[in-house]
Amino acid sequence: MTRTFMAVVAGALHRADGRWLMHRRPEGKHHGGLWEFPGGKVEAYEIPVQSLVRELTEELGIVCHSEGCSPAGFAESEADSGQPAIVILLYTVSAWDGEPQALEGGAIGWFTPAEALELRKPPLDIHLAGQLFQNL
């Protein structure tokens, strides 16, 4: 049986000062120049939180532990032009080791919820940010 969607994880890292990390996608990539929650594809051998830990190490150079990751919401797209639908699982991340860096190009920044909502984002990240920040 073939999977009809691609599972993706994303991490909403937050600091004690109330700021949240957003990652700007490198120019030349799909959604280049837009801001998103960092993360990536869930591999077939991983459960989502394991994938999140791996992706945050690869993208940001930090080490987080699964017990510091809490499910916060999800967003999904429709399949389009032969591409599978995407389901993004968003986790809040409250603790990690290391200082986040943009290791795969682009940039990172720390934003208040109001600032994060105003950033130009891909459609699914607009939805995720709305879910995450609606009660803050």
Score class of each variant (00 low, 15 high):
residue 1 M to Y: 09
residue 2 T to M: 15
residue 2 T to I: 13
residue 2 T to V: 12
residue 6 M to S: 14
residue 7 A to S: 09
residue 8 V to G: 01
residue 8 V to A: 04
residue 8 V to L: 12
residue 11 G to T: 13
residue 16 A to G: 06
residue 18 G to Q: 08
residue 21 L to I: 03
residue 21 L to M: 03
residue 22 M to Y: 09
residue 22 M to W: 10
residue 24 R to M: 11
residue 25 R to K: 15
residue 26 P to S: 12
residue 30 H to M: 14
residue 31 H to I: 01
residue 34 L to F: 05
residue 34 L to V: 06
residue 41 K to F: 11
residue 42 V to K: 01
residue 43 E to D: 14
residue 44 A to F: 14
residue 44 A to N: 10
residue 44 A to Y: 09
residue 45 Y to L: 07
residue 46 E to Y: 00
residue 47 I to T: 13
residue 47 I to V: 13
residue 49 V to A: 13
residue 50 Q to T: 03
residue 51 S to N: 08
residue 51 S to F: 01
residue 52 L to A: 05
residue 55 E to A: 05
residue 56 L to K: 00
residue 59 E to A: 02
residue 59 E to L: 03
residue 59 E to Y: 00
residue 60 L to T: 05
residue 61 G to C: 02
residue 62 I to P: 04
residue 65 H to G: 01
residue 66 S to Q: 09
residue 68 G to P: 00
residue 69 C to Q: 08
residue 69 C to F: 06
residue 69 C to T: 07
residue 70 S to N: 05
residue 71 P to C: 04
residue 73 G to E: 08
residue 73 G to T: 03
residue 76 E to A: 11
residue 76 E to F: 05
residue 76 E to C: 06
residue 77 S to A: 03
residue 78 E to Y: 01
residue 79 A to T: 03
residue 79 A to K: 03
residue 79 A to Y: 00
residue 82 G to E: 04
residue 83 Q to M: 10
residue 83 Q to L: 15
residue 84 P to Y: 05
residue 87 V to L: 14
residue 88 I to Q: 10
residue 89 L to T: 04
residue 90 L to Q: 04
residue 91 Y to I: 10
residue 92 T to K: 09
residue 93 V to Y: 03
residue 95 A to V: 07
residue 95 A to R: 13
residue 96 W to T: 10
residue 99 E to V: 15
residue 100 P to L: 12
residue 101 Q to L: 13
residue 102 A to T: 06
residue 105 G to H: 00
residue 105 G to D: 01
residue 105 G to A: 00
residue 105 G to I: 00
residue 106 G to E: 00
residue 107 A to M: 04
residue 108 I to D: 02
residue 108 I to R: 08
residue 109 G to C: 01
residue 109 G to A: 02
residue 110 W to P: 12
residue 110 W to A: 02
residue 111 F to C: 06
residue 112 T to N: 08
residue 115 E to R: 09
residue 115 E to Q: 15
residue 116 A to N: 04
residue 117 L to C: 15
residue 117 L to Q: 15
residue 118 E to M: 14
residue 120 R to N: 11
residue 120 R to Y: 04
residue 124 L to R: 13
residue 124 L to S: 07
residue 124 L to D: 09
residue 129 A to G: 06
residue 134 Q to W: 10
